[in-house]
Amino acid sequence: MSDSYPEALKNLIASFSRLPGVGPKTAQRLSFFLIKSSPDEIEGLINSLAEVKQKIHFCSRCGFYAENELCSICQDSTRESTIICVVERPQDVLSIEKTGYRGLYHVLQGVLSPLSGVGPEDLTINQLMKRIETEKFKEVILATNPSLDGEATAYFIARKLRSFSTRVTIIARGLPLGGDMEFADEITLTQAFEGRRDVHLDA
């Protein structure tokens, strides 16, 4: 960053640089764009930032983003309330929503990781257990990332759920659509074979 920049501009660039995925060059570009923007546009941006900080928090029930105490999903009475999908982060809810899934969610807010010092008490596993005790789900779908930490977290939860009569499932692992089998690694292929299913033909 040039020393000749005014202090206010330096501060703005430094603020943008703190955002994930934004380097110093991008931070400068964004800053110059804002300098050229109209006062109304700037005010709109400031209001949006203030509003999001003031209003958005985690849903007290599932941990997804919410404006009220409960998020829009937990408030929706038309959703299938006997199925719950356990995900790592709130962003995962948005991805699963695109699939047409109509059940409820529980966001763990991370994944177990001994190397990063993340233990069960740092996640919302206890809240999940309480929900399963009180909300009488028929099925718990474990949809953690297909990383080793994600799987270890899923199996950790599955073991805690052994005392409940609830069905516990884990989402399938295997080949992504559009991929080429020639380039698939043997672990992914093995999991795809393990997760194979019967072919159902239309009558």
């Binding site: 080793l148 930490d149 799987e151 270890a152 899923a154 199996y155 950790f156 073991r159 672990i187």
Partner: peptide
Amino acid sequence: YREIGKKT
């Protein structure tokens, strides 16, 4: 070592 994820 994929299987180790199943045993804490």
